[in-house]
Structures are given as structure tokens and as C-alpha cells.
Amino acid sequence: MMDPHVTELEKDIIKEILNIGLARAADSFAAIAKDKVLLKVPDVQLLEVKDLLSLVAKYEDTHIIIQSDIKGDFNGSTLMLFSEDHVALLSEVCLSMLDVRKGELSVMQESLLLEISNIITGALVTQLANILKSNIYGSPPKAPKSHIATSLKDILVQHPLFQPLVFTVITKFQHNSKDVELPLLLFFDTTTLLKILDIIRSFNYDKNNMFENT
């Protein structure tokens, strides 16, 4: 398997591209959350598949996971991880629900989580497509009912040797001075990483010129 070498500068450029996409996503999310939303991108990580699955598995028993696949020129997924506390606060703010019961999601609550994932992934994918001049789109989000490895099989099984490029993004949602952090995992397969690197390397690393059309 090709081991893609990503320089620190290239990592910075990928993070800058994601920051632009996430800023747009935050604005879109804030419109339905009726409050301030902050998104930040930490370090880019290259992980083995088993490490990715163990990272996701840590959240499986305590969080509702909403998955949206990225298709077209790139192959990837976003996973948004909602704890019961997140669901309760978002239900209160966005659906005006009081005394939200923890446990089973109502149809309205699941629709809300799917819509939030759709908004954030859609805004991010649109910006990535614009900046990287690529034809990509997000598939409708879903709440996987099975083990997360099963729901990710389109990426993991069809590309059993790939080394995913994983971004762990913390979405900080502020409401009435309460901070709620929503983990978001974004990852691409190795082929996509190589495509992104080819595109970035075709730019002349002048960030001002690179992002002027976004």
C-alpha cells in the first residue's frame, strides 16, 4: 500500500481548507440552533482501520451516531456523535421541547439530528468542492442501527488496505452561556487523500490566491 507522505505545510493547507468549510457549516447550524456555534479543526491524523474503529467504538454505547457518506470524486464519511445531554439541549433549543426524556429518540428528535448532520456535512462538502474544484456530494445522513463497522463497510470493505485520513472536529455549541461539545469525525480513504494532495500540490501555496474564490 502506498504510504502517503504529508508535509506539515500540506497538513496546514488541508486544515485551512477544512476551517473555511467548517465556518460555513457553523453559520448554517447557528441558524437552526438560534445561537452561536464554533467549530475548530485539530491535528490531521493518519490512522489504521483498526484504530479508527476502536476510536468510534468508544462512543457507540454512549452516543447516537449519525453517519453521512461523501461520494463523487472523493470517498469518505462524516460521523456526528450526540450524547443524551446533547440531544436534550438541542431538543430544547431547536424543538422547544421541555423536560426531554433520556433514552429512546422520538421521530422529531431523530429528524433533528439527521438535519443537523445534513446541514454541517452539506456545507462542508460544498466548500471542499469549491476550493478543490471537485465533484463531490454528501449522501443523506442516516442513524446506523447496526455495529458502526457494518455501516462503514462501503469504505472499509471495498478498500481493505486503506489508511484513513481522520479529522476529529469538536463542534462547540454555545447556548445561554452553556457550552456543549459535539464530536465530529471526518475521514477519507487513501485514494482520496492522494487526490487531495495532488490538487494542493498543483496550487502555488499562496493561500490568499488559493482561497480567493471561496
Rank of each mutant, 00 (worst) to 15 (best):
I116F: 02
A143P: 06
L152S: 02
G122Y: 08
T126H: 10
Q127R: 13
T126I: 08
K153M: 03
I155Y: 02
I155M: 04
T121F: 13
N130H: 06
S139H: 07
L114Q: 10
L112C: 10
K153I: 00
S117M: 13
K145H: 04
K153T: 01
T121S: 14
L156S: 01
A149Y: 09
P141D: 11
H147M: 14
E115S: 07
D154V: 07
K142D: 06
S146Q: 15
E115R: 09
L114M: 09
E115G: 12
P140G: 02
I148N: 00
T150P: 00
S117F: 03
Y137M: 10
Q127C: 15
L128W: 00
Q127A: 15
N118T: 11
K145M: 05
D154H: 02
L112G: 06
A143N: 11
A143G: 04
N135C: 10
L156T: 04
L112S: 06
K153R: 01
A143R: 14
L113K: 05
G138W: 09
K142G: 08
N130G: 07
P144K: 09
I120L: 10
S139L: 14
S151H: 07
N130V: 13
L124M: 13
I131V: 14
L114Y: 06
K153L: 04
P141E: 10
K145C: 03
K133A: 08
T150Q: 15
K133T: 08
S151L: 01
T126D: 12
I131C: 07
L114I: 13
Q127I: 15
P144V: 14
Q127M: 15
P141L: 05
A129R: 03
L156D: 01
P144A: 07
S111T: 13
L124G: 02
I148P: 00
P144N: 05
L114N: 11
N130E: 09
V125M: 03
L132F: 14
I120W: 12
S111C: 13
T150M: 12
Y137P: 00
P144L: 07
S111W: 05
A129D: 08
A123H: 01
S134P: 05
L124A: 05
I155P: 00
P140W: 01
L156H: 04
I119G: 00
L112K: 09
S146C: 08
L113A: 03
A149L: 11
E115N: 09
I120A: 11
S139D: 11
S139A: 15
P141W: 04
S134I: 03
S111M: 15
S139R: 11
L156V: 06
N135Y: 08
K145T: 09
L124V: 05
I131Y: 09
T126Y: 10
T121W: 11
A123Y: 08
D154G: 06
L124C: 11
I155F: 03
T121D: 14
T126K: 12
I148Q: 01
L128E: 01
I131W: 10
L152I: 01
G122N: 10
S146F: 11
Y137D: 12
P140V: 05
A123I: 04
K153C: 02
I119W: 04
T126P: 12
T121V: 12
A123L: 03
S134T: 05
S134A: 08
I148W: 00
H147Y: 11
I155V: 03
S117E: 13
N130A: 07
K142F: 11
P141T: 12
A143M: 15
